[in-house]
């Protein structure tokens, strides 16, 4: 094997020159990329700003991006520079004999650890501030909104649709969902068969719908518009078709819609099982029949 490496071929000055070039190139491209990400693309990043939670997620994506992109660009710059400059061949001597560098390695450990710990702290802060960040917190949420919850919506998932119950409107059940603007909303998400997931994309809300579990998530609406609801956990054959749409409307429009639905559905509401946080499918109730979990045989009903 070729082992004609001589230290004179690899001077310290030459090494410093390479380092300066790499850092110079990296700094320029990293600043341009971060500017573009924060100011140009940032305001349009998913999932938008329809709710406080969605806005928080968008902010997190922006912050992580402006931190991650320079890391990615540094490795690219270093890698492509090395490919361009440090080429060899079968008839050329071996490379620079160096097995480590304490300063470089220490700097790398410190910088990566600092970045990671900052991101963990930042993520935790962002998780707590917007009340769970829109994720399902289970039956006993620990990050609750600072303003009182004004509307509770129960999301019941089943193969393969979502229905919504409204305890503040007589426990009525609807197949569509409208929400009022500027309102703190609590979603109580559950399932009556397998695991589903309630993903209201533009609202920044995602909570698994588990049978016999009440999974609570919060959102405060900030913008009017339509939002998409999709199931986000594989739930069987028609999982791909389990979606619908909702709207954020004015408070007056919402109140009018809800009271109208309450009157319209009154006769059906009487037949429904009593409102509960979770339900269990009836042993014989094929076709969507279900009862409160304290009464799985439906005796009381």
């Amino acid at each position: 094997m070729t082992t004609s490496n001589k230290s004179s071929e690899f001077t310290a000055a030459e090494g410093r020159s390479h380092v300066k070039k790499i850092i110079g190139i990296w700094l320029v491209v990293a600043i341009i990329a971060d500017y573009f990400v924060w100011f140009v693309y940032g305001p349009h990043m998913p999932p938008g700003a329809m709710t406080d939670q969605a806005r928080g997620q968008q902010f997190d994506i922006k912050v992580i991006s402006v931190m991650a992109i320079p890391v990615l660009l540094f490795i690219w710059t270093f890698g492509f520079y090395s490919i361009a400059k440090f080429r060899g061949g079968k008839d050329r001597p071996d490379g620079y004999y160096v097995k480590g560098n304490v300063k470089t390695q220490t700097a790398w450990y410190v910088i990566t650890a600092t970045l990671v710990l900052f991101l963990a702290g930042f993520g935790t802060f962002e998780l707590i501030v917007p009340a769970g960040a829109g994720g399902g917190e289970g039956p006993s949420p620990i990050w609750t909104p600072s303003t009182p919850v004004k509307l509770v919506v129960q999301v019941i998932a089943q193969q393969w649709r979502f229905t919504y119950r409204w305890p503040q409107f007589g426990g009525m059940e609807t197949t569509s969902i409208n929400l009022p603007i500027n309102t703190e909303i609590q979603f109580d998400v559950t399932s009556i068969d397998v695991i589903h997931d309630f993903w209201a994309y533009q609202l920044g809300v995602k909570a698994d719908a588990n049978p016999d579990v009440n999974n609570v998530a919060f959102a405060k609406t900030l913008q009017y518009g339509r939002f998409t609801v999709r199931c986000d956990e594989l739930c069987g054959i028609w999982h791909g078709a389990m979606y619908n749409y909702g709207k954020v409307v004015s408070q007056t429009q919402f109140y009018n819609w809800a009271t109208q639905m309450q009157r319209q559905n009154a006769s059906v509401t009487k037949l429904l099982p009593k409102f509960a946080l979770t339900y269990t499918p009836s042993y014989t109730g094929a076709g969507g029949g279900y009862y409160p979990s304290g009464d799985p045989n439906g005796t009381a009903a």
Binding site: Q57, I64, L127, D197, Y201, K206, D232
Partner: peptide
Amino acid sequence: GVYVSDVPVNVTVHGS
């Protein structure tokens, strides 16, 4: 992976 591990961002990207 950093995006996925951040809980708030995970709300958007989980299962997607």
